[in-house]
Amino acid sequence: MPFVVPKENYTGRIYTVEIGTGEKAVKVGGANTLPYLGFEGEIPNPPAIAIEIQDIPAKDWPETLKKPFDGVTDDPAAWARFCEKELGVGIIALRLISTHPDYGDRKPEEAAKTVEAVLGAVSVPLIILGSEHVEKDTQVLKVVSEAAKGRNCIIGKAQEENYKTIAASAMANNHKIIAMSQLDVNLAKQMNILLMQMGFDKERILTDPMSSALGYGLEYTYSVMERIRLAAIVQNDPAMQPPLVSDIGRNVWKAKETIASESDIPEWGSVEERGITFEAVTAISMIMAGSDLLIMRHPKAIEIVKKTINELMER
């Protein structure tokens, strides 16, 4: 019995979403096959990686993670410039964590100033993330979206409870949007449909099905993403075809596995390599499940994953 390549024919394709402007603009998505099955379709763009910075110094971050950013986290603009110039990262994700009522409650206008300063410091595309406080994000993301007009950013995250204002301002200022839902295929689809119904161009949406860290619910995210990708590619469902975003860094660096010292738990080995590998393994699993854009924290983890992405793109 001779071997016959078990090729399947798909009709769906992921939308190509471009972010940023000029030479540094980045395209994500565009595949018309399941992750890295190059024998039956095209994968025009590699998964992109954004590095996460925040609008307050990284005091609470674990030591492993603070080290590579030593001396730059006091000023978000300097931090962003460092990521672009020194680390050579292609996308910056700025989390406006201090706008959260529990973490500083900064005003939308202050957040807008930070966004302007960061945009002034870098030429790579910017992802602007709120604090995921439902009410506060509506105020903050509206104002920062205006401040970032013309730079083709990704604004996020819009959730079922607050998407209208956020989407309206992202639309008015020509940005892309992250639609977030909670670990459920149907909720992810519904969120995309809600945005489309208010006139948001479906090819400007990115779906965040809620990320998790390795060991902390990764299997749920993994399967939800695989199912979304199957619906997009195999069933050609237009409401499932936005690229997928994995916001993993903050989950990974909260896990005990990335923080506990070797003296506390000797059987886990060196904390630095462990943390980096934990983030890189989380990232590569998300890429296997269909992620098109990852938000990560540790520069070394990003470097490791990028090398593997390069190999994934080679035939």
Binding site: L214, G215, L218, E219, Y222, S223, E257, E267, W268, G269, S270, V271, E273, R274, T277, F278, A280, V281, T282, S285
Partner: peptide, 20 residues
């Protein structure tokens, strides 16, 4: 099989092979 390397790999295997 450094310990720091096996923790993430063994965790991933556990996640992937969990009964959904």
């Amino acid at each position: 099989i450094e310990r720091w390397k096996m923790l993430p790999l063994i965790t991933l295997r556990q996640n992937i092979y969990t009964d959904p």
